[in-house]
């Protein structure tokens, strides 16, 4: 999904009006275009084999009842019907939606706050240190992050030790094993991972804002809050759009963190579509149903991401 987004052409060239071509020019242009296609052919082949073909096969599989080995049976849209009527599967999709709050909204909101604070120290050695620390969670493999956090959140882990030390032993619990706290606990891990990415993107965006705007705002008597709302926020519209897009995809398509920290438990409390697709396809061998859920997940991602793209697209002031 992300690779499809990442490698899509921006189409800027098409907007440029072409002069009415003479015959010779048209010939040259055609040849140039042919050479162009030749250049992108290797990438296009890879794209077709590793993105388009699996996409088409997934669509095809979703219409069959297939165990991955034997002969498949055509079932039409039955698998989709199951996805939308099975209460467990609906709960699983609901879990992913809840995770958007933790993976997306919290990192973006906190990221804005942190970015405004560290904006002034982005240059020099200290700035580099700050950026490195903030970005570190992005560099650590998600599996390692999941393992480390499951130690922190275990019943004798650091989190509970701290709670006991300050006299809050009563609320200490196995955070990832408790029905009420498992999903928020997984969310906290996600927020930690994605906060750095959002902050870095937003700091970069802020450094591009014309200082004159702040000066003008200050001359008009704006305080820090007013400055933030009137200058910083509108200028960061595109960066916020990118942050939301990336993090919402991370939330809906999450797998690693959940698989490592809870395996979807307790019960179905933290099971997310990515995990369920994998389980259905490989452990329960229902490739058709897994494919249908994958298609639904893809549509869900598009349904969440496309409006954000539209809203944050506007030209920079």
């Amino acid at each position: 999904m992300t690779s499809a987004l990442g490698s899509a052409p921006t189409g800027r060239d098409d907007r440029r009006a072409r002069p009415t071509p003479t015959r010779a020019y048209r010939f040259r242009w055609a040849r140039a275009a042919g050479t162009g296609w030749l250049y992108v052919l290797p990438a296009l082949v890879m794209y077709a084999v590793f993105v388009l073909r699996p996409l088409v096969l997934t669509l095809q599989y979703s219409l069959y009842d297939w165990n991955g080995i034997g002969v498949a049976r055509w079932v039409g849209l039955d698998n989709y019907l199951t996805v939308f009527t099975d209460s467990d599967l609906l709960k699983i999709i609901g879990n992913a939606v809840v995770l958007i709050v933790f993976f997306s909204f919290i990192p973006v909101a906190l990221g804005l706050l942190v970015a405004s604070m560290v904006r002034r120290i982005t240059t020099g050695a200290f700035g580099t240190v700050v950026r490195t620390i903030l970005f570190l969670p992005q560099v650590i493999p998600l599996v390692a992050a999941g393992i480390a956090w499951s130690w922190l959140l275990s019943s004798n882990g650091l989190v509970n030790q701290v709670l006991r030390a300050v006299g809050l032993g009563g609320v200490a619990r196995a955070w990832l094993g408790d029905f009420d706290t498992a999903l928020p606990a997984v969310g906290v891990i996600g927020a930690w991972v994605l906060l750095g990415l959002c902050t870095i993107l937003l700091v970069t965006g802020m450094s591009k804002i014309d200082p004159a705007l702040y000066e003008a705002a200050r001359l008009d008597g704006a305080g820090p809050v007013r400055e933030f709302l009137a200058v910083t926020l509108p200028s960061l519209r595109q960066e916020i759009g990118v942050c939301l897009t990336v993090t919402i995809i991370a939330a809906l398509a999450s797998f690693d963190i959940v698989y490592i920290s809870t395996s979807g438990g307790p019960g179905l409390q933290t099971t997310v579509p990515g995990l369920e697709i994998y389980r259905l396809a490989f452990s329960q061998r229902q490739v058709g149903l897994a494919s249908a859920l994958a298609v639904v997940l893809m549509l869900l991602v598009l349904a969440c991401v496309l409006p954000i793209q539209r809203l944050t697209r506007g030209e920079k002031p």
Partner: peptide, 25 residues
């Protein structure tokens, strides 16, 4: 990144769709 997808020109959409169709068949 911010202007992907929604600014996908029609011609390329047609191209993508036809690629998908070829894959399908």
């Amino acid at each position: 990144m911010a202007e992907l997808l929604t600014k996908f020109p029609r011609r390329r959409t047609v191209l993508l769709a036809s690629l998908l169709a070829v894959g399908m068949t």
